[in-house]
């Protein structure tokens, strides 16, 4: 167990594993995502209340899911950075923060465009929307803090602390629709319960969520590999790897 844990922290081991999994992640992610989106756009039935504008759900929900999941993953990695000083955990936080920022922006943007025909407004300062906006600022803060500190180890510790402080926002986002009266509809997607929506809508949504998760896995591996190349370029194994022509 501990040996596995230490291996997991080794950038060299990660590089090998990532190279093995990346083609599968990319292919699986693209197939599922395209299938889910095409199904959702053209074949899923119209919503009786919202009409066709509800089709935005097939990108809005996966983006919002990832925006929050990435933050939770970053917080777990931040604990590992602070407690075990594992290099790879910090590489992960640094590599995926911009991806988290992207998905938070996409969730907010698609939500705003969906809100216009559904609620009659682009934006309201209600609990769900405001806590998502705070998540966007948290991602921005993490990226800015990391870039403003030159020393790698100090940056890693400062970023880990900021990520952990910000994690308080995640339950607020999740339960905001239950705690407060908001315009936002309650959760559409629960793994533990039977879905409230029709199967013809739920299955394409599940496909696009899974597809985007796999695509994120691929993107995270790629960006982590880039970061490892930069940080470990003085080591012998990276030199051998690069000179052998393995990317």
């Amino acid at each position: 167990m501990w040996q596995f844990f230490h291996k997991l922290g080794s950038p060299k081991w990660f590089f090998g594993i990532a190279n093995r999994f990346m083609p599968w992640l990319l292919a699986g992610g693209l197939i599922l995502l395209v299938a889910g989106l095409v199904w959702g756009l053209a074949f899923a039935p119209k919503d009786y209340l919202q009409g066709n504008s509800y089709r935005i759900i097939f990108i809005h929900v996966p983006s919002a899911f990832l925006a929050q999941s990435i933050y939770i993953m970053m917080a777990s990695a931040a604990v590992v950075t602070l407690v075990w000083r594992m290099k790879l955990a910090d590489v992960f936080v640094k590599s995926v923060a911009p991806v988290g920022l992207l998905f938070t922006f996409l969730a907010l943007f698609t939500g705003a465009v969906w809100g216009k025909p559904t609620w009659g407004t682009w934006w309201v300062w209600d609990a769900r929307l405001t806590s998502m906006l705070i998540l966007l600022f948290l991602y921005g803060g993490v990226i800015a803090l990391d870039r403003s500190i030159n020393d790698e180890k100090s940056a890693a510790r400062a970023v880990a602390v900021l990520v952990l402080v910000g994690v308080v926002n995640i339950p607020i986002i999740k339960y905001s629709v239950n705690w407060w009266n908001t315009l936002h509809q309650p959760a559409t997607f629960k793994l533990t319960e039977k879905p409230a929506m029709a199967m013809e809508m739920w299955v394409p949504l599940l496909l696009s969520v899974l597809g985007l998760y796999l695509l994120f896995g691929w993107l995270a591996c790629l960006r982590m590999k880039t970061e490892i190349l930069v940080r470990e370029r003085r080591t012998r194994w990276v030199k051998e790897l690069v000179l052998a022509g393995r990317k």
């Binding site: 756009l41 119209k46 009409g51 066709n52 983006s63 991806v99 943007f109 698609t110 695509l215």
Partner: peptide
């Protein structure tokens, strides 16, 4: 046209595809 909701739906999908593909 999506019964008048086309501009909303297609704007979202276009921004999504451009930003995700751009990041990749």
């Amino acid at each position: 046209a999506m019964e008048g909701h086309g501009p909303y739906v297609w704007t979202c999908y276009a921004v999504f595809v451009i930003l995700v593909a751009g990041t990749v």
